[in-house]
Amino acid sequence: PQVPQCKALYAYDAQDTDELSFNANDIIDIIKEDPSGWWTGRLRGKQGLFPNNYVTKI
Rank of each mutant, 00 (worst) to 15 (best):
P1C: 05
Q2G: 11
Q2C: 09
Q2R: 06
Q5I: 12
C6I: 03
C6M: 09
C6W: 03
C6K: 00
K7V: 13
K7T: 13
K7Y: 12
A8F: 03
A8W: 00
L9E: 10
L9M: 08
L9G: 03
Y10L: 10
Y10M: 10
Y10R: 15
Y10A: 09
A11I: 03
A11R: 15
A11E: 13
A11L: 06
Y12A: 02
Y12C: 00
Y12P: 00
D13W: 05
D13E: 12
A14Q: 06
Q15E: 08
Q15I: 09
Q15S: 07
D16Y: 11
D16E: 11
T17C: 11
T17N: 05
T17M: 13
D18E: 15
D18P: 15
D18V: 07
D18A: 10
D18R: 12
D18M: 12
E19S: 10
E19R: 09
E19A: 07
L20A: 01
S21V: 01
S21L: 00
F22G: 00
F22Q: 01
F22K: 02
F22H: 02
F22C: 01
F22I: 05
F22N: 02
N25Y: 04
N25A: 11
N25F: 06
D26Y: 02
D26N: 03
I27S: 03
I27H: 06
I27G: 01
I27F: 07
I27D: 03
I27T: 07
I28V: 04
D29W: 06
D29Y: 07
D29R: 05
I31G: 03
I31T: 08
K32A: 13
K32S: 14
K32C: 10
E33I: 09
E33D: 07
E33G: 00
E33N: 03
E33W: 02
E33Y: 04
E33V: 07
D34I: 00
P35H: 03
P35C: 12
P35G: 14
P35W: 08
P35K: 14
S36D: 13
S36P: 01
S36I: 02
S36Y: 06
S36C: 07
G37W: 03
G37V: 02
G37L: 03
G37C: 03
W39R: 01
W39D: 02
W39L: 04
W39G: 04
T40H: 07
R42C: 15
R42A: 14
R44P: 04
R44Q: 12
R44D: 14
K46E: 09
Q47V: 15
Q47D: 05
G48K: 02
L49T: 07
F50T: 00
F50V: 08
F50P: 01
F50M: 06
P51A: 06
P51Q: 04
P51K: 09
N52K: 07
N52M: 08
N52H: 12
N53H: 14
N53K: 12
N53V: 09
N53W: 10
Y54K: 10
Y54L: 13
Y54D: 00
V55W: 03
V55N: 03
V55D: 02
T56A: 12
T56K: 09
K57T: 05
K57Y: 15
K57I: 03
K57E: 07
I58L: 11
I58V: 13
I58F: 11
